[in-house]
Design a protein around this nucleic acid. Sequence first.
RNA 1: GUUCCGGUAGCUCAGCAGGAUAGAGCAUUCGCCUUCUAAGCGAACGGUCGGGGGUUCGAAUCCCUCUCGGAACGCCA
Length: 564
Amino acid sequence: MDYKQLIADAIHKELSEHLELNEIKLLLEKPKHTDHGDVAFPTFQLAKLFRKNPAQIASELAESISADVIDRKEVVGPYINFFLDKKVVSGAVLKEVIEKKEDFGNHTFGENGKVPIDMSSPNIAKPMSMGHLRSTVIGNALSNILTKVGYSPVRINHLGDWGTQFGKLITAYKKWGSEEDVREEPIKELLRLYVLFHEEAEKDDTLEDEGRAWFRKLEQGNEEAVALWKWFREESLKEFEKVYQRLNIAFDSYNGEAFYNDKMDRVVDLLDEKELLTVDQGAHIVNLDKYDLNPALIKKSDGATLYMTRDLAAALFRKETYDFAQSLYVVGQEQSNHFKQLKAVLKELGFDWADNIHHIPFGLITKDGKKLSTRKGKVVLLEDVLDEATAQALQQIEEKNPDLPNKERVSEQVGVGAVVFHDLKNDRLNNFDFTIEEVVQFEGETGPYVQYTRARALSILRKAGQETFQASDAYQLSDAYSWEVVKLLQEYPDTIKRAYDNFEPSIIAKHAVHLAQAFNKFYANVRVLDEHEEKEARLALVYAITEILKEDLRILGVESPNEM
RNA sequence: GUUCCGGUAGCUCAGCAGGAUAGAGCAUUCGCCUUCUAAGCGAACGGUCGGGGGUUCGAAUCCCUCUCGGAACGCCA
């Protein structure tokens, strides 16, 4: 039920000669202050039309408008403020939530279209950092949002499993490493070797050459090099998997950079056929002047392929494999030029589907104001952050609720939830400077706050001994506190749609926080379990909240403990 | 130098298909547990919405310009 629509209809009846229905709908707004009602209609625009002052128009127009959902109208200057019938609306909304449960807010316009999402993409032999967290959790949340609006997402972990760094790594391993050490703590050891290589390379020029030589051997299929590469890859993946399990994220594909090694010749041939390649300073490029972009580098002057070549191959592969409706790349904003070029080259090749490729950029995480750099060993390890968050959550539980069963499990849910929620709660383009204090918080607009709110709500249901509800519009509520909650529930389908339209998980996070805040106010001011004529309806509201908070958190990739 | 992000309360951020007194969290101070989990609720404090122009009945929101941060600008990914 769309109340804005109903009111627009009612107004349109009176103004059909002057304004289109959708024009009226666009004029309707949601007042900032509750004493201005639930829906407001400003009449400024009508002033010219009627050659009267807006206030006069408002008061004359208000009298003739009526609809079942309108409880009362107030004219304040040039505004007509509509107050909806709380009982009618709350009954209808609660009925729908109880009926649909976690499917409330779903849309079908995605029509099952496949949407590959390039996300996470850590580099083999390097630890997962806070930077990878962003791509991972944003990609995961977008996947969930896409599912909610009817698409069929394909989570692709485009692993950084190829490149000259493997030559360096092999060199470093053979010089300073041992099988034992790598087996012990694969990523820590491989990172140590990688950092060491760069330190030593500053003193010794021949090291870089050696690294390049080993990479060449790897490319040529040298047995020793390939074996080491495979081993590094396997060991790294095992460790990544541990993190992904903690984050509760699974991928549909691990086709990384290496996967496209044998698929790039075709791209070059295709570009050649269409006569798009030109040679400039020895390198093969595609000129993109007409797009106002720098040329795309396809082949280096030594003949080696590049990032662009590989991504073109990947784009083609994904189109052919999935016949996607859209293709998303959750990659840092510093690469927006690359993706503009990628789309432009595909366009030049005559592929209209390039329009369905979307780069989903996100802001940079810095530490002490500086960019994180694996090479310099300046990283914030994701595992360390999750461990710290979990430890603090456990400490919190010991203080607040020491008798809680499954403390370990719950502290993991709360700790990891805090970190993930923190990463998703603001506009994804915002940069932020990492401090553990800021990321691991349990009060205010945080994941644990939302989790805690839901746990309290569930506790009421447990005490009431009622955890299932009949879908009925008899659950009617009249108090101001529940009304704020009902309005937020009612907006849910729209919220999901907006999150999808903007590819923006923070819209869901904000809904979760607002819903939790509204419920906590309700909780503090309205007794649910006391005998009251609206007791059943209040319980139904509490139930609806537990469902929707859980759904909000699920979309974000955050778990919902039943008690905490 | 060019292009792209961003500048809103002490701090972190909402609000930006223009609308009625600019909101929240954190921090600080003060209230509220004999009643549904105080990881909560309430109150106080806190703002030239970076500066200046313009469009408009109306601008934090749109346009121009300046300024200050961050990022990207052909052989890394």
